[in-house]
Structure formats: structure tokens, C-alpha cells
């Protein structure tokens, strides 16, 4: 049985050493586009963390319950080739559902978070976490997957907030014209990734 240490390792590993954004390159589009102000970056990070956590657990249940060979409900049929389609449908459907629930019951949260929700469906980080879950042939059990999904989401949240902070400072900086915008953002990301590489030894 997995011990508490292993959970801590998975959590720290997915937040710091294997940061979904800085080490696995996922979620870059929204990371670059949304990280201009701290408020929006914070909202986006929160939304991504929440959706990643929930959809990964849902998809874990679907994958082990129905899709894979020897699954609980359809053991004789191997439907794992459908995983891409099912995963993205679950994510899109879940995002739609969250949007409707928030609009109906928590309008204030909806207006602060709502604009990011449609963008989340095509955020590679979320599908990425879902695919990494099955890529190594389900190395984690349910609880470990939950910790991994949470850590990955938190890692994205941390990275996007750090980036927003740095970009805030950069407004005063004198950047060469060709480097403004995308060029600078990518180079800063590279420097951040370098800093995060320092965590590798800590976890492994």
C-alpha cells in the first residue's frame, strides 16, 4: 500500500520537478495569453486546477471501468483506442456543466471566472494530465492519480502567477522591439524552467 511519503513525493514532483508547464511544455498558449495581469492569471490558474482535478478522476474511472482491456464492466473488449475521443468529450462536457452551474448558482464567481472556462477546453495541460495518466500504463492507483492531478494543476497555477508577477515588473523595462511580446515571454519561461530544474534532485 502506498505510504504518505509516496503521496508527498508525487505532489511535490508534479508541482515542482515535473511542472506540467515548465518541464512538459503543456498549457503554453493560455500561459502566454492570460499572464498579463495577476488577477486574471490567478483566476485562470484556479479554473485549470479545478477542471484538471475533476476530469482526471472522471476519466480515470471511465478508463479503468469501461475502456481498457480487462476493465471492470467490459473486461472482454479493449476500447482504449477511444480514449482520446472520450477524454476530450468528458473535458468539454464538464467545462460546459461547470459553466452552467456557476451561471445559475454563483453569478459573481461566474463573471470573474467565466471568461476562462471556454478556453480551458482547449488547454493542453488538462488533456495532457489525462493522457500522462494512461501513457505509462496506469502506474498510479486512484488516490495517487488524484494527488498527481492536483499537483499538476497547482503547478500550472504557481507558474502562471509567477509569470504574471514577472510580466508586471517588465512593463517598466526597456525591451528591444523585436523581443517584445512572445519572444520575451518565452525567454522568461525558459529562465523559470531553468530555476525549476533545480528541484529535480530534491524529488528523485
Amino acid at each position: 500500500m502506498a505510504s504518505t511519503t509516496s503521496y508527498t513525493l508525487i505532489l511535490l514532483g508534479s508541482i515542482l520537478a515535473n511542472n506540467i508547464l515548465l518541464a512538459k511544455f503543456l498549457g503554453m498558449c493560455s500561459f502566454i495569453a492570460i499572464s498579463r495581469s495577476m488577477r486574471t492569471a490567478f483566476g485562470m490558474g484556479a479554473a485549470v486546477t479545478f477542471v484538471t482535478f475533476c476530469t482526471t478522476l472522471l476519466n480515470y474511472a471511465i478508463y479503468t471501468g469501461v475502456l481498457r482491456h480487462g476493465s471492470r464492466f467490459l473486461p472482454a473488449v479493449d476500447l482504449s483506442y477511444l480514449s482520446f475521443l472520450i477524454f476530450i468529450l468528458v473535458i468539454a462536457g464538464f467545462v460546459q456543466l461547470v459553466e452552467m452551474v456557476l451561471e445559475r448558482f454563483m453569478p459573481s464567481l461566474y463573471f470573474s471566472l467565466g471568461i476562462y472556462l471556454p478556453l480551458i477546453t482547449v488547454n493542453c495541460a488538462i488533456l495532457g494530465v489525462n493522457l500522462f495518466m494512461i501513457d505509462q500504463g496506469l502506474i498510479y492507483d486512484f488516490a495517487q492519480t488524484a494527488v498527481y492531478a492536483l499537483g499538476s494543476g497547482l503547478g500550472f497555477w504557481l507558474a502562471i502567477c509567477l509569470m504574471a508577477g514577472i510580466r508586471h515588473r517588465l512593463r517598466e523595462a526597456d525591451i528591444p522591439l523585436p523581443l517584445q511580446g512572445l519572444g520575451m515571454a518565452v525567454i522568461i519561461t525558459g529562465l523559470m524552467a531553468m530555476a525549476f530544474m533545480g528541484f529535480t534532485g530534491m524529488v528523485n
Binding site: L22, A23, K24, P178, Q180, G181, V186, L191
Partner: peptide, 28 residues
């Protein structure tokens, strides 16, 4: 070969491309 190296390479490529053709997309 590492992740930061990939980011820095892309950043520099963007920089070079925009220096040679300044009209390509002012600000994304």
C-alpha cells in the same frame, strides 16, 4: 536538449525572425 533550452531556442528564433521582418505581427 533540456526543457529550458527549448524555451530559450524558441525565444531567440522569434527574436531573430521579428528583427528581420519587423512587420510580422506587432504584438500577439
Amino acid at each position: 536538449k533540456t526543457a529550458p533550452g527549448a524555451f530559450l531556442t524558441l525565444g531567440v528564433v522569434v527574436w531573430v525572425v521579428k528583427s528581420i521582418w519587423p512587420q510580422t505581427g506587432a504584438a500577439p
